[in-house]
């Protein structure tokens, strides 16, 4: 059974499909939203936070085709790295898949895609979040 690559950023509700959503926190004092783990608000330092889940869409803020990957990158090379702005505010970096380089446009709507990836050298898999062009799943 695959698990999330990082449960503090990606909650997996169904590992078979797989299904899940990005998670974070909203500050009850200043309304700032953060992606990922938080015990204190990054903006006002309050500890009055509520955990939230994000929707599965975002808009492409920037991208790059990485030809020389970081050490430990398990995927194909080159790959497209996307910086995506969530409607709630935070930006999320992840691989952009299912698209040709020439079709990428800043501002385009992207969907979250959950992909099992081989993890480490043990043969186990983890579910990693990526971005994919909208409306591919239908």
């Amino acid at each position: 059974m695959s698990s999330s690559i990082d449960e503090t950023r990606l909650n997996i509700s169904n590992a078979e499909e797989p299904q899940g959503e990005l998670v974070g926190f909203k500050c009850n004092d200043c309304d700032v939203v953060v992606f990922g783990p938080a015990k204190f608000c990054q903006s006002c330092t309050s500890d009055n936070l509520t955990s939230i889940t994000f929707g599965s869409v975002g808009s492409l803020y920037s991208y790059t085709e990485v030809k020389v990957p970081p050490h430990g990158w398990p995927g194909e090379v080159p790959y497209i790295l996307a910086e995506v702005e969530l409607p709630e505010g935070p930006h999320v970096l992840a691989e952009l898949i299912n698209i040709q380089h020439e079709d990428i446009q800043i501002g385009m709507t992207l969907n979250l895609a959950l992909i099992p990836v081989e993890y480490g050298s043990t043969g186990s898999t983890k579910i990693v979040y990526k971005w994919s062009p909208a409306q591919l799943s239908d």
């Binding site: 990485v66 970081p70 050490h71 430990g72 990158w73 790295l81 993890y119 983890k126 990693v128």
Partner: peptide
């Protein structure tokens, strides 16, 4: 995890 997500 960032090495697998690709952003670092």
């Amino acid at each position: 995890p960032d090495r697998y997500i690709g952003g670092d």
